[in-house]
Design a protein around this nucleic acid. Structure first.
Lengths: 231, 231
DNA sequence: TGATGTCAAGAGCAGTGCTCTCGTTCTTGT
DNA sequence: ACAAGAACGAGAGCACTGCTCTTGACATCA
């Protein structure tokens, strides 16, 4: 019977969620390397071998957390972007930046899991690439809207772009769809890179002694980058 | 006797180096989390407990590797900078960027150790902050020289900087020594942040599907950032 | 009802960081 | 020159890890 099956399935899904929650808590307090499957099992009230019924290995559990993290930060970005008037490009950019930084600071270890040091030999499964592109899709959407609305000055750049670089930008141009100048593609790439570079530098402690990690400074920095892009 | 002392001291120093080399090899192939003190001991031909005569804990061994990594990347940056004519500011910037990227790509795990996800509860010892500032000192030196030689346009920015942000920039201004506009401080910070943001994005695999990781594109990107700063 | 599959539990294996103890060797102060 | 003591390598052992395999209880389906 379908209901009987779904009962089992629901119980199972709940237990999977419970395991992931416990793992997330451990991740936050101990870091990725300190995440112990046995400790997770203890917290859930299971014996270690039972957890293997739900996650075939520790890596798979981590992969599940990675996917969740990508989705969480993507969702935060999408929500922030959607809360602004579509035509207010700069506000959308700023709101998205703030949302991503806020999520990252609140979920430091999860952020490190996806944007930090990769584990050697670990190949990102197919399931991760979808959620991974959500946040970039938001940023591209903002720039594309700004372009369509004529709110971004797409001066084709004072200096010509070498052919080789033009070719390498092809996949990025693909994302944008329409006709975009090479320099705007590069400026977009710079903005995207800088957003996460600044967050990583701040959260990973590489700015201690230089500039305090404050909302107002982050705002100013990102606004500056936004102007660089053309907002 | 002094020579007798130096004999065992030298043996000890050699063994310390040997342990660090083996650890570095393991780090490169297994990653930070997979670095096993016992495996290192085996490779050196020691029993695990003997290694504790040289490094009081696994964390201390990792800290030693971190310090070495900071010094290595700092040295690479200094050498690249010094190989250029002092007045050729842009060339110095580009050479430094390339050297840092080259070292990072060749020592991916060591790069991740210092610029990647930090371990929770791990406090960076005093010994690390000195080597950590070497590379930033190079970048600041380039900008300061450019400023003194009048090669960097330090237009004080179209928009005024809020007082709060001015205050937060005080430590950065300290580094520069002379009188620098707020906006140049921020542009410098952006350049520094972006250099490592771009390297991290590339090496950590966040640019797959967007732009190929090639020397020529990196060059273009960094030159673009250099122009943004004012080179 | 009986067969099938799912599940939790337990034992066990190989590996880890780290501590302690044990002889041995080298260094140093007298 | 000799004894005190520090430094050293080895080994055993503890508590922990990821993971596998087997066992027995329960639920689902034919």
């Amino acid at each position: 019977m379908a209901t009987a099956t779904s009962v089992r399935a629901r119980v199972r899904a709940e237990l999977v969620d419970e395991i992931k929650s416990a793992a997330r808590r451990q991740l936050a307090s101990e870091g990725a390397s300190g995440l112990s499957l046995r400790a997770v099992a203890r917290e859930v009230g299971l014996v270690s071998s039972a957890v293997y019924r739900y996650f075939p290995s520790r890596d798979d559990l981590l992969t599940a957390l990675i996917i969740d993290a990508y989705n969480a930060v993507g969702l935060a970005a999408e929500a922030a972007d959607a809360s602004c008037r579509q035509s207010d490009i700069e506000k959308r950019w700023m709101a998205t930046c703030r949302a991503i930084r806020k999520w990252s600071a609140a979920n430091l270890q999860e952020y490190g899991l996806v944007y930090g040091t990769p584990v050697p030999e670990y190949r990102a499964p197919e399931d991760t690439i979808g959620p991974a592109t959500r946040v970039t899709a938001v940023l591209i959407g903002i720039i594309r809207d700004g372009l369509e609305l004529g709110l971004i000055a797409d001066h084709s750049g004072e200096e010509p772009i070498p052919r080789v670089i033009r070719a390498e930008l092809a996949p990025v141009r693909e994302f944008f769809g329409g006709t975009v100048s090479d320099d705007l593609l590069i400026r977009s790439l710079v903005a995207w890179t800088h957003l996460f570079g600044a967050i990583s530098f701040e959260l990973f402690g590489h700015r201690v002694g230089t500039v305090a990690s404050s909302d107002v400074f982050f705002d100013h920095e990102m606004r500056r980058i936004g102007h660089f892009v053309g907002f």
